[in-house]
Amino acid sequence: MRLGYCSITWGGVVGHPTGVTSVKDLFYLTHGDMRRAVTDIAAAGYEGVEMFDGNLVDFADRPQELTDLLDGAGVQLVSVYAGANFIYPDILPDELHRIRRSAELAASFGAERLVVGGGARRAAGTTADDYARLAESLDLVADIAESHGLAASYHPHLSTIVESPDELDRLLPNTRIGFCPDVAHLAAGGGDPATVIRTYGDRISHVHLKDLRRDPFAFLPLGQGELDLPGIVAAIRDSGYDSWLMVELDEYDGDPRAAAELSRDYLRDLLAV
């Protein structure tokens, strides 16, 4: 397996402010220096990087700058992360416009994968139709990704309508998009990550790894929390998945490169067993 790292730790995540009044422009952004992020990720020993769609948009008018940055660091842009509500018919065309733009940019920079999260929770409560709309929308995302030579996967996430194993079961059988297990989000949503991975092993097309402490709640570098990461990695291996493992850490109370190095050392030891 090859090891990659997500750039989110170098500034956290925000939404593009234009998106408040223009849904088609509501890209995710890491509010930090991508040059430092890519350089640190490479120096920490990772071969690949995942970025948010909005950070690629920042390079759209100066593409050679990002290409030179990746080439100079010796890392590959593996995947691009995007997201949307996906359940509101009136705004879905504009959301898909944004997904299409994300896929176009991802492909232009040599990425292999498009990862999406989403499925809004309504103030009035989630309906059964919301899962059907989400499933249909994710099929469209898969179509868009494939038209640009990318593999698409869905990432269950806290605050969406797909947090728990039961909610995942309501979605995945009804859409053809691939599955991106984020092991910490699965655990925080009440699931056992290894069990979920074994249940949907044939759907896995991307993986996010981070550790978790439940009380007080925090996402942590690998090996610093309470997840059974050896059991999780064994489940991933047993599923037949043998590709990129992307380490992700939303934020870190310290140097993000140091966090990346902690996870790298833990993963290298674990994968050597």
Score class of each variant (00 low, 15 high):
residue 241 Y to M: 07
residue 153 S to L: 04
residue 208 H to E: 12
residue 190 G to F: 06
residue 149 G to C: 12
residue 73 A to P: 08
residue 82 A to H: 04
residue 118 G to S: 08
residue 68 D to S: 14
residue 6 C to R: 01
residue 212 L to Y: 02
residue 108 S to N: 11
residue 234 A to Y: 02
residue 89 P to C: 03
residue 49 V to S: 09
residue 67 T to H: 08
residue 40 D to A: 10
residue 45 G to K: 00
residue 133 R to T: 07
residue 117 G to T: 14
residue 234 A to W: 02
residue 242 D to V: 04
residue 212 L to P: 06
residue 204 I to D: 13
residue 62 R to M: 09
residue 63 P to V: 11
residue 262 L to S: 07
residue 178 G to L: 07
residue 184 A to P: 07
residue 61 D to G: 07
residue 177 I to A: 03
residue 256 P to V: 12
residue 95 E to F: 03
residue 267 L to C: 11
residue 85 N to F: 01
residue 6 C to D: 15
residue 151 A to P: 00
residue 105 L to P: 08
residue 118 G to I: 04
residue 23 V to H: 00
residue 129 D to G: 15
residue 155 H to T: 10
residue 98 R to K: 13
residue 34 M to G: 08
residue 192 D to Q: 12
residue 273 V to E: 12
residue 16 H to F: 02
residue 131 Y to L: 10
residue 243 S to Q: 10
residue 30 T to A: 12
residue 272 A to D: 15
residue 41 I to R: 04
residue 240 G to M: 13
residue 212 L to R: 03
residue 145 A to N: 11
residue 97 H to E: 15
residue 189 G to H: 03
residue 91 I to T: 15
residue 135 A to F: 01
residue 255 D to N: 13
residue 228 D to C: 04
residue 126 T to S: 10
residue 29 L to T: 03
residue 270 L to P: 13
residue 55 N to A: 07
residue 250 D to P: 08
residue 202 D to H: 06
residue 167 E to P: 04
residue 121 R to A: 14
residue 69 L to Y: 02
residue 76 Q to M: 11
residue 268 R to M: 12
residue 36 R to Y: 04
residue 166 D to A: 14
residue 27 F to V: 02
residue 144 I to Y: 00
residue 267 L to K: 01
residue 180 C to Y: 02
residue 111 A to S: 13
residue 25 D to L: 03
residue 39 T to K: 00
residue 85 N to M: 05
residue 196 V to D: 05
